[in-house]
């Protein structure tokens, strides 16, 4: 902390124009939760703030809190994710990641470790041929770190280890049922049959490291199926459909 103001760092998740030349933006900050700031005059071409204040920019800001909405006086971009912003499909995917994180991140506490994973994931999007796999890894880890991890090794009903055969995924309960427990599921539960190969992808995500997962030979159809199930699990946890998900 210096003088009357404060410093904070984080990823800008969204910006809204306010009055003639001001911008109100939301920051997923490292240590202070999700915060809103006002950048006065930021839309003027000669503003020192313009250019730095844009969604999916990792920034360091200096602000003063004289009113309810802290006013930003200095901004420095640390990572602008230029490669992501130059490709439409990557930009859309990174916006999905940011909206997803907004829903899970704590409003007023430290999100440092989750934010680090988020920025690494956005960075990874530009380096891979399977951006949807990268998103899946992030979704999987996010659910796990907030206590909604999927049960992929044991049956949701009998808790026995799942056999190396087809099992049935339930997104409402976030895990698998073995074949012998199918009769014990709820009537309104939608179950999707998963082959052993598809289950291996989930297990690989759980056990292996980032680079190793990306080096797996996974077909697009499997990624699509697993990704759809993960998104349904997330919607079930959040109780809402993410606005960005229909663009993926």
């Amino acid at each position: 902390m210096k003088g009357k103001g404060n410093y904070t760092r984080g990823l800008i998740s969204r910006c809204t124009n306010y009055k003639d030349s001001d911008i109100i933006f939301t920051l997923l900050s490292e240590n202070d939760g999700i915060q809103n700031f006002i950048a006065r005059g930021a839309k003027k071409p000669t503003s020192k703030l313009s250019g730095h204040i844009e969604p999916i920019n990792f920034v360091e800001i200096y602000y003063t809190s004289k009113s309810d909405l802290p006013a930003v006086s200095q901004v420095q971009s640390i990572n602008s994710f230029m490669k992501i912003k130059s490709k439409y499909n990557l930009l859309i995917r990174s916006q999905y990641l940011v909206e997803l994180s907004e829903k899970f991140f704590s409003d007023d506490a430290n999100n440092n470790s989750q934010l680090k994973i988020l920025t690494e994931t956005i960075d990874q999007l530009s380096k891979t041929e399977h951006p949807d796999l990268v998103i899946m890894v992030y979704e999987f880890e996010l659910l796990k770190s907030y206590g909604f991890g999927l049960r992929i090794f044991e049956c949701l009903n009998c808790s026995k280890s799942l056999k190396k055969s087809s099992n049935y995924f339930s997104y409402t309960n976030g895990g698998f049922y073995c074949e012998s427990c199918l009769g014990n599921t709820h009537s309104n539960e939608e179950l999707v049959k998963f082959s052993i190969e598809d289950q291996i992808i989930f297990r690989s995500i759980e056990r292996k490291k980032y680079d190793e997962i990306l080096s797996l030979d996974i077909n697009d159809l499997s990624i699509k199926k697993l990704s759809e199930m993960l998104k349904k699990s997330i919607s079930n946890v959040l109780g809402v459909q993410l606005k960005t998900s229909r663009f993926l």
């Binding site: 071409p45 000669t46 020192k48 313009s50 250019g51 971009s77 602008s80 230029m82």
Partner: peptide
């Protein structure tokens, strides 16, 4: 770069 701005205050995006 916009007319009237200082290079010193330009962000990476704009400069690039």
């Amino acid at each position: 770069l916009a007319s009237g701005t200082d290079l010193e205050y330009s962000d990476f995006n704009t400069l690039s």
